[in-house]
């Protein structure tokens, strides 16, 4: 089966700093894949490269067989390549419903504003924000803002969803709720890439894990393979610990 989203030798340099170098991987239709790595590993940069926020220094991004390496963010959104932000980005003075209908009207298939609102209401009910549809977005709590962000991306009817730290700042029970929601989204046939630096969160939902360290992809495999990978342990816990772990193991 061919990949719906494929990165080939993707690199990004900011001046002399190489933020992402030579990363290649593919996402298959309907998969949930986790992308992990320590702070500053280049995870968010990678998402920005895929959605056209940054231009590629080198390599190719192929989405549904089409080279989309030079797309703009709004084009990515219309193609069905949606993302959420690590730092939530609502339209603060609009209502929750208007926020989500923006996704439906501009990024999704909804023809007019009325159709967009209908689609938006459905997504709000899905993520559990139906009861606050007419509140201003700025009044929501952090977990609800994260849900709003999700609803907004879902209203765009994406085929691939990039979730950039949707769980950051949530407590344990809120994370459980968010993970349930992610599984439900996956049940709708959406391919999902979850970006996280919390191992625990990703391990519980991902079918496959990618590990980024200093901008390079150092591991790609099942969660079990990855947590036992020598280079991953080194990246997270340092070379000294990895050495001891190896002896003990």
């Amino acid at each position: 089966m061919t990949a719906i989203l494929e990165l080939k030798n993707v690199s990004k340099n900011f001046g002399g700093v190489s933020a992402v170098s030579n990363v290649s991987f593919g996402l298959k239709q309907g998969e949930i894949v986790g992308l992990i790595g320590p702070n500053g590993a280049g995870k968010t940069t990678l998402v920005n490269l895929v959605t056209g926020v940054h231009s590629l220094s080198d390599g190719q991004v192929i989405f549904k067989g089409e080279d989309v390496g030079s797309q703009k963010p709004f084009q990515a959104a219309r193609r069905g390549l949606a993302r959420t932000f690590q730092i939530v980005q609502p339209f603060p003075e609009m209502t929750v419903l208007e926020n989500v209908s923006a996704g439906a009207v501009f990024g999704g298939a909804a023809g007019g504003i009325a159709a967009g609102q209908e689609a938006a209401q459905a997504e709000l009910d899905f993520v559990g924000l139906g009861h606050v549809a007419n509140e201003p977005a700025s009044s929501l709590s952090l977990p609800n803002r994260k849900r709003l962000e999700l609803a907004k991306s879902l209203a765009m009817k994406p085929s691939v969803l990039l979730l950039d730290e949707v769980n950051a700042g949530l407590n344990a029970s809120e994370i459980d709720d968010a993970l349930k929601l992610i599984e439900q989204i996956s049940g709708r046939g959406v391919t999902i890439l979850i970006i996280e630096h919390l191992m625990k969160v990703v391990l519980s939902v991902s079918e496959r894990l990618l590990v980024l360290h200093h901008g390079e992809l150092i591991a790609d495999g099942t969660p079990k393979q990855v947590v036992e990978d020598q280079r991953v342990i080194e990246a997270y816990l340092g070379a000294k610990f990895a050495e001891r772990y190896k002896v003990a193991g």
């Binding site: 959605t51 703009k72 963010p73 709004f74 959104a77 219309r78 993302r83 932000f85 980005q89 609502p90 339209f91 603060p92 003075e93 609009m94 208007e98 923006a102 996704g103 009207v105 501009f106 990024g107 999704g108 007019g112 504003i113 907004k152 765009m156």
Partner: peptide
């Protein structure tokens, strides 16, 4: 005010990056 254009412009007003991300050709 009642069209897509006005809606998109208000999105840009509130948060231009987010508007771009939901598919507004800013």
């Amino acid at each position: 005010d009642r069209s897509r254009l006005g809606f998109g412009l208000r999105c840009i007003h509130q948060n231009e990056d987010a508007a771009d991300m939901v598919g507004v050709d800013t």
